[in-house]
């Protein structure tokens, strides 16, 4: 067991714990903060695979942009523990069943894969040079299409916000 494996297990433990805390915590602000912790541990996993670009972009996009907006909304709406409506018991049950079956599917899919799916420590797949070549040679069309998708989402947001005027 090398140091990479040890770090992997520590990170995984923190990730799972933070994810559970995110679901369990009563205050929405705490939930958002725990989710940010999850993103950091995921970035840590990327770094273990030497996927530096993915790790940093994960932090910039999720922790740095999306979660900031989440936090913004939660803080401005001042959602408190008391103001959170009691959820329907059936909806909670449905959530548990749906989440549990998703975990089952993922587990069964992951059990059948090869043991060595990723290269820990010295992989070079996630380095920016490699990633750029793959994106702009092999996957150029999907890449451009997804950019157009993002652009259309942005335009849609502008249109919705302008409608009232």
């Amino acid at each position: 067991m090398g140091i990479t494996t040890i770090v992997f297990f520590i990170l995984s433990a923190i990730a799972v714990m933070s994810a559970i805390m995110m679901v369990v915590s009563k205050s929405p602000v705490h939930s958002v903060l725990w989710l940010i912790a999850v993103f950091f541990t995921i970035s840590g996993h990327y770094i273990l695979m030497n996927a530096q670009f993915l790790a940093i972009v994960n932090i910039i996009v999720y922790a740095g942009a999306i979660m900031v907006l989440f936090l913004f909304v939660v803080m401005l709406m001042n959602l408190n523990v008391e103001s959170e409506p009691m959820k329907n018991y059936r909806i909670q049950l449905a959530g548990v069943v749906a989440g549990g079956s998703l975990m089952l599917v993922l587990l069964s899919a992951l059990m059948k894969t090869d043991k060595l799916m990723v290269q820990l420590k010295d992989g070079d797949v996630g380095l920016i040079r490699q990633l750029g070549r793959v994106l702009f040679n092999d996957y150029l069309i999907p890449f451009e299409l997804s950019s157009v998708l993002f652009l259309s989402a942005m335009i849609g947001a502008v249109v919705i916000s302008k409608r009232d005027k």
Binding site: F53, I56, V57, I59, I60, A63, G64, V68
Partner: peptide
Amino acid sequence: LYVFAVVSL
């Protein structure tokens, strides 16, 4: 990009 990540944090 690291600089950006830290700035956004």
